[in-house]
Computed example of a mutant assay.
Amino acid sequence: MSSVLLERDYDGIVWFTINRPEKRNAINDEVMDALQDTIRLVEENDKVKVLVITGAGDQAFCSGGDLSEFHHLHTKEEAYRMLSKMGTILYSLLTLSKPTVALLNGMAVGGGCELATACDFRYAKQGIKAGFIQGTLGITTGWGGASMLFEKLPYAYALDLLLRAERVPIEKMVEYGWVHALLTEENRKEQCRKLLSPYLAQSVPVLRSYKQYAVKKWKTDEFRTKFFAEIEQCAVLWESEEHEEAVRTFLNRK
């Protein structure tokens, strides 16, 4: 079974679905590579207007990196190779010249929240929770999530979410400005399409122009340096005993 489902609609939407519901749609190398290829496709194809990223099933949007596949990474150098690979992909998602949406079909935690933060808009199913829970594993955001969050939310809200390291009711995430629309249980895809319909009515050159104005501030050397310094700091913490123990506990619980 493929780890990713890819669809392209008649109206210019590319739907990227992480298809690992048995793993709570955790990200592995196959998902990373597919996402990288899809971002490139969306960037280069003039018939594509919007990229929507979601997860398979009803339980999870994305639970971050798949620790069962990455538990063999112990040193700072080993961790940095994985973290910087996904960080580079999320940086390209953040600076994509087309609108992007995270459609949260279920809970989002850890790196799943970083993936969602890289998108322009976040639409979420009612009643779910989301949280930057990296602190409970003895690490910090490792894919550039904190750098992006401080850019997109008011300072106190962003810091609160990072420091509390908890799963937060999605209604609170709406209040903080992280989620832009709540969706009901039924036909979430159609609800998403309806929210996007005004954007889809615009031409690709118009969409590109506005996005390029928006992301210009993130294409600076200053922001890139900050973004990848965050990833390096996570790699330092990755080889700590606290993280090793947290991963052992997580895998034994599984």
Rank of each mutant, 00 (worst) to 15 (best):
L6G: 01
I13S: 05
I13D: 02
E22I: 09
E22R: 14
A26M: 15
D29P: 01
D29G: 04
E30L: 13
D33G: 05
L35S: 10
I39Q: 06
L41V: 04
V42K: 06
D46W: 05
I53C: 09
T54W: 02
G55L: 11
D58P: 00
Q59A: 13
A60N: 03
G64D: 03
G64N: 08
G64F: 08
D66Q: 13
L67S: 10
F70D: 12
H71L: 02
H74N: 14
E78P: 04
Y91W: 14
T95L: 05
S97R: 10
P99M: 06
V101M: 09
A102K: 04
G110C: 15
G110I: 01
G111N: 11
G112E: 11
A116P: 06
T117S: 12
A130V: 09
F132W: 14
I139E: 03
G145F: 04
A158T: 11
A165V: 03
P169F: 09
I170T: 10
E175N: 04
E175R: 07
G177F: 05
W178E: 05
L182H: 00
T184E: 11
R188G: 15
K189S: 04
C192N: 11
S203H: 10
V204T: 12
P205K: 03
P205M: 03
L207E: 07
Y210E: 14
K211A: 01
K211Q: 15
Q212R: 15
D221K: 14
E222R: 12
R224A: 14
F227T: 02
E232D: 15
A235E: 10
E244W: 13
R248C: 08
L251H: 07
N252I: 00
